[in-house]
């Protein structure tokens, strides 16, 4: 753009500000929240067990392992094998390794999370109108150049993430059908685990389908939407979700972790699932 030489105030140092409020609290909460989730998800992925609960006819699959591409014969696996033939024998295998990159990439490139982790992890900036590390100065590249220009792949990771949500809804539906005590067929039922998994799919749906990329694809790219009632309705709906995107992002993150923990604790026998009907 057109510019003249600007004599500007000196670049501030990290953390320098006149703000008198607790500006550091939000980035600290984000740092701790995302770190805790990352550590738990990694630990849970490496466990490679306690992800499918079938006691009492239940059918609860942890969302960290869904879709279960490979698994034991009694598990709802998609491929009839315990692990891929190409998997190196020296490397430990977990079915979660094959799928977690999908939702992980969705979160990593999400517009909300980008803003949040740039602040919390890279202090870029650490908070609004608070100084950031001086060494960056005018070398700042933002998302204009490599590597962060690759964040533009967000739209490509959205579609697999949307497919995951559909699979998780199927899992929640499957969790409504309990194997009869005599082993002949299934019967409809709802346990606490069913509700946990159903809520998990719903929250992840609210997060995924309310993302900025979905909003753009569904109609945001258009300048004129009059005369397109279905598209307008979809755009309005996605915009409603998008307005609360941060809330969906956090609630769904916590709940997906809890859903895995719930199934895991059931498998370990820490508590038993309460069958509502």
């Amino acid at each position: 753009m057109s510019h003249a030489d600007l004599r500007l105030p000196q670049v501030q140092k990290l953390g320098q500000t006149s703000r008198t409020d607790v500006w550091w609290l939000q980035p600290l909460v984000v740092l701790l929240g995302l770190s805790a989730f990352g550590v738990y998800a990694t630990w849970a992925a490496f466990q490679a067990r306690d992800y499918f609960y079938h006691t009492g006819g239940a059918h609860y699959l942890s969302p960290f392992y869904s879709p279960l591409l490979y698994g034991a014969p009694h598990e709802p696996r998609w491929i009839d094998a315990t692990l891929p033939s190409w998997w190196p024998s020296w490397m430990p295998f977990s079915a979660a390794f094959l799928i977690l990159a999908g939702p992980g990439a969705m979160r990593f490139t999400c517009y909300y999370y980008r803003g949040a982790y740039y602040k919390a992890f890279w202090a870029d900036p650490i908070s609004c109108s608070v100084g950031e590390p001086k060494f960056r100065g005018e070398k700042y590249r933002g998302e204009y150049r490599l590597p962060l220009i690759l964040q533009n792949i967000h739209r490509y990771v959205f579609y697999p993430a949307a497919a995951f949500v559909i699979v998780l809804f199927y899992d929640a539906f499957r969790a409504m059908w309990f194997t009869r005590p005599d082993g002949n067929g299934t019967e409809f039922g709802v346990g606490v685990g069913t509700l946990v998994l159903l809520l998990n799919a719903t929250l992840l749906g609210g997060y995924t389908f309310g993302c900025h990329c979905a909003r753009h694809q569904i109609g945001g790219y258009l300048d004129r939407m009059a005369g397109r009632p279905i598209r307008t309705a979809c755009y309005t709906c996605v915009s409603w979700l998008n307005k609360r995107h941060m809330g969906w992002a956090w609630v769904s993150l916590v709940w997906v972790g809890w859903s895995d923990a719930y199934v895991r604790l059931l498998c370990k026998g820490v508590f038993t699932d309460f069958r509502i009907f």
Binding site: Y112, Y118, K119, P125, C128, G142, Y144
Partner: peptide, 17 residues
């Protein structure tokens, strides 16, 4: 190019103020 929108890293500080 000239506007450098890629430099924005979505801190949302502008919206807040």
């Amino acid at each position: 190019d000239a506007g450098g929108i890629g430099y924005c890293n979505i801190t949302k500080c502008c919206t807040k103020v």
